[in-house]
Write a protein that binds this DNA or RNA. Structure first.
Lengths: 188, 188
DNA sequence: CGCGTAATTGAAAAGTATCAACACTGGTGG
DNA sequence: CCACCAGTGTTGATACTTTTCAATTACGCG
């Protein structure tokens, strides 16, 4: 659920630190600040340097559905940029966040000229695809209790980092259902 | 729900017909034949030439969850190939299917040497990503009736092509629920 | 201390799954 | 030509799960 991409992170960090590439700039965001906003045009790709953001979209029913939480090395904005569309989701900082930012033209140039980067980028897309596919399938065919079990396995101290509402939005359930299930599970 | 990729289709068709690339071979499958099988190693990328396949994965609860239906120009096998893993889903022909097949090494070479192809490939991944993101979000936050309405809008004669069970598997619901909803909707 | 946000809980309503029975269809073999 | 069979589709009754609505408590911070 909290996605990272070490390989990409290391590569970008190297690019920046070695001074061989000047197209990346660093930016900082405070908790609950929005980095991308649903429906707005996107001009850059962002790569997480530190901290955590949530990526969510608001449905026509007014619910927030959280796609993923991004940590170190994950990138966002790439979808909108590549197909030249408006942002389909909102990216909001959860804690203190630092990101690397690269403009569209620079990004496309890097993609064309740097084979290693190109491959890493494709790898990042593939990883997201696979993640989304299995997640949707899992979500459809399991009860809330099973989903929660799985989350607790992977992230034992999740509740300390992420609010209950966010966890509910991530699982696609109501806060009420989340609380009932947690209580039922702890009673065992 | 039935995904296609005209741009990629045209490009590949040209490559094949012009004779400038010999790494593609053509293959045919009969209805209900399996092209990729979940859990097995993948050695090639496939691109749909004609017909339709379903891409589904079997969950630990025994349900089949259909990810997508692929038509002309869509590609599959790319995820497994790029991250060197076993197939996470099964691809099964629905009607008569023709595909172009390209081996891993040839595919990677093409990706490196053909900038246009590289860009088209990335575009295909991006398109899938976006599709999956919005679909999951929609699925979570709407009732069966709403999902069906939407399907009927986009594919009015869906039931003639795809079996009820497949539609149910695609929506992540039981066949019973599908039938009840259809009947309730037609009564209006 | 007071305010706003986050968390908790109960009760009723709505939505879905499960289980089980039956109908329809096209093809196959006696 | 009919009987049978397997696959697909239809329907009812019931139990279970989740949402909705609403009220209350806990917590952090200026």
């Amino acid at each position: 659920m909290i996605r990272t991409n070490k390989e990409l992170f290391n590569y970008i960090t190297n690019l920046v630190l070695s001074g061989s590439d000047h197209s990346f700039s660093e930016h900082h965001f405070a908790p609950s600040q929005e980095i991308l906003i649903e429906g707005k045009k996107v001009f850059s790709v962002y790569i997480m340097k530190s901290g955590m953001v949530k990526c969510y979209l608001t449905t026509d029913t007014g619910n927030n559905f959280i796609q993923e939480f991004f940590g170190e090395g994950e990138l966002f904005g790439e979808i909108e940029l590549m197909d030249d569309s408006f942002s389909y989701c909102t990216i909001k900082a959860i804690d203190m966040v630092s990101v690397y930012k690269i403009q569209k033209s620079d990004f496309l140039q890097l993609l064309d000229q740097d084979k290693k980067f190109n491959r890493l980028f494709i790898g990042a897309l593939i990883s997201k695809l696979k993640y989304k596919a299995t997640r949707h399938s899992y979500n459809q065919s399991h009860t809330i209790e099973e989903k929660l079990m799985r989350l607790k396995m992977k992230f034992p101290d999740l509740e300390k980092v992420i609010s209950k509402q966010d966890i509910a939005d991530y699982l696609g359930i109501t806060l009420r259902a989340l609380n009932r299930t947690i209580k039922a599970m702890s009673a065992i």
